[in-house]
């Protein structure tokens, strides 16, 4: 059974249709990439999955259970973790406390186990040395890492990554991809929106292309990238 399913999900803001009849299944442990031009509705799709936005039509299912009307907090506890495109740290709290919030609420980890659990994630994401620093003053790479670490602390079965490699140098990107690969190797399913295609294609098993809110294509990355329609719309290369 699919761990996450979207069935004919649509969403409009006024006359603008930002998500148009999108359906797909995500299997347990699978990594799915999402690409598309700016304004294609990629982040909106994440917001529909996490419950930050309610769809006008269609259903969202986790493990076959309809969660369409559940608030974001309940979906986190059902196993959906997310990072934001623009990092949103709890700026007055330390890096460690950012994870502690996620572990205690979303991850439902008991108080006695939470410190060790959080420190382990901080070590894996390369943030252990800045654990006590206020998160509001971190540079971009560490903010991106914190987004990933905080999502991990909710103990997700599906983790949604929104342009987490955007703005990073190649070296920083390689480090981040290694961490994402290790999360995936442990069996966590991933949906990753990204414009850094070499990073994305080194992790995902399937690729989805969105354009004007519609799902244009879904399949293996090399097949999708070879599609003339995708190359024209996304890369601007005429067939």
């Amino acid at each position: 059974m699919a761990i996450l399913s979207l069935q004919s999900v649509s969403k409009s803001f006024g006359a603008l249709k930002v998500t148009d009849d999108v359906s797909f299944d995500l299997n347990a442990g699978e990594a799915l990439g999402i690409i598309g031009p700016n304004g294609a509705g990629k982040s909106t799709l994440f917001n529909l999955i996490t419950g930050n936005i309610q769809p006008d039509r269609g259903r969202v299912l986790i493990d076959g259970q309809d969660v369409t009307r559940l608030p974001p907090m309940d979906r986190v506890r059902a196993g959906i973790g997310r990072s934001f495109q623009i990092p949103q740290p709890f700026g007055h709290l330390s890096v460690y406390e950012n994870l502690l919030v996620a572990a205690r609420f979303g991850g439902e980890i008991p108080a006695s186990e939470a410190p060790g659990f959080c420190m382990d994630i901080l070590s894996r994401t390369g943030l252990a040395t800045v654990a006590e620093k206020p998160s509001g003053g971190l540079p971009l790479l560490q903010r991106k890492r914190l987004e990933l670490a905080r999502a991990m602390a909710t103990r997700p079965r599906v983790i949604l990554l929104d342009e987490i490699a955007g703005g990073l140098t190649d070296a920083e990107c390689v480090e981040l991809v290694a961490t994402i690969r290790s999360i995936h190797a442990e069996g966590t399913a991933i949906i990753w929106i990204e414009h850094v295609l070499h990073a994305l294609n080194s992790v995902v098993e399937r690729l989805m292309v969105l354009n004007f809110g519609r799902m244009l294509m879904i399949g293996q990355p090399d097949q999708v990238m070879a599609s003339p329609e995708v190359r024209e719309i996304y890369l601007g290369i005429e067939a």
Binding site: T50, N52, P71, P72, M73, V76, R77, R82, F84, Q88, P89, F90, G91, H92, L93, E97, N98, L100, V101, A102, R104, F105, G106, G107, E108, A111, R150, A151, A153, T154
Partner: peptide, 22 residues
């Protein structure tokens, strides 16, 4: 735990919701 959640809400309500805080 509730106090920690409260300070997370103060800093960023949207992000707090996304890590399970009501």
């Amino acid at each position: 735990r509730m106090g920690l959640g409260l300070q997370a809400i103060r800093d960023n309500e949207n992000a707090a919701r996304s890590v399970g805080v009501d």
